[in-house]
Simulated assay, not measured.
Amino acid sequence: MERIVVVGAGHMGSVIAGGLVDGVPQAEVVVVEPSAERRASLAGRAEVAAAYDPRPDDLLVLAIPPQAFDSFAESLPPGACAQTTVVSIMAGVRLETLASALGTDRVLRAMPNLAAGVGQSMTVLCPGDQVTAGGVDRARGALSVIGEVLVVRDESLLDAATAVAGSGPALVAYLAQSFTDFARGAGFAPADALLLTSQVLRGTAAVLSEPGATPESLYRQASTPNGTTAEGIATLRQHRVGESLRAALEATAERARELAG
């Protein structure tokens, strides 16, 4: 039986562990969490432990804060992770750092997002050069329980992934606030304003998922000359909304690069 160990039972660690229990019932899922309160909250859902007991060929998911990584690595016996495939969702901790501290080349970095909680994460996964195709498939399979997984080979792309996928839900929600505020101001009840906005976002995502669809093709198709949508797009361009959003994404990516050192 495959053993998957999730270290850290914070929000994302708990979501991943819960997804594994439900989505990979044939695996032994272990959650390592020093907090007794958090362990108690998971009791009955997965096997829980206060400390990691390494076993050869574990799939180890590190869902701890980056500042806790050094103490975790130092707590392990020498060579404990030599045969372990390690997936880190810690922001800013590079593959080289992971491999050096844990004594294994089987390291991968993953960037999930807030939508993992509803099984709709866009997770970007980057394997180290020494990770086999089987190791990549194993990690991708585990992370697929929380949504879509995109594999990239260039680690520098994870900074952009942090902006687009990691921070994306919050940026989209910020923009969605304007939709709900407008609807409420026009007279819609708060719940109805949120329904209007959320369904527009959901439907737009579904259309963009169709073969051949692009954002530009969608808004051009909806923009009848001199019509309502065309007027809205023209106003967005006038106020340079696209440029402002790109600037926000670049600032987010730059901050990710700074945090990674």
Rank of each mutant, 00 (worst) to 15 (best):
P112M: 01
L62T: 04
G141S: 14
V32T: 12
V107C: 15
V164G: 02
E148F: 02
P112W: 02
G119Q: 08
A251K: 06
G79D: 12
S156V: 03
T162G: 02
V48F: 02
M12C: 09
E243H: 09
E28P: 06
A49G: 11
T97W: 04
I233Q: 07
L195W: 10
T180Y: 10
G19W: 04
S100K: 14
L195P: 00
L208D: 13
C81E: 07
F188N: 00
G134W: 06
H11T: 14
I146C: 12
Q120I: 02
L194Y: 00
G261D: 05
L20W: 05
A251P: 03
A27E: 07
G212M: 05
V86I: 15
A165H: 03
E33L: 08
E33W: 08
E33C: 05
A116K: 05
G168W: 08
G212I: 03
S88W: 04
D129K: 12
S244V: 11
V200C: 14
Q67K: 06
S41N: 09
V164T: 08
D22W: 00
L171S: 00
T132E: 13
A49F: 10
T180F: 09
S144G: 10
L114Q: 15
E37P: 03
R138N: 09
A99S: 15
L42I: 11
V87W: 06
I233K: 06
G134V: 06
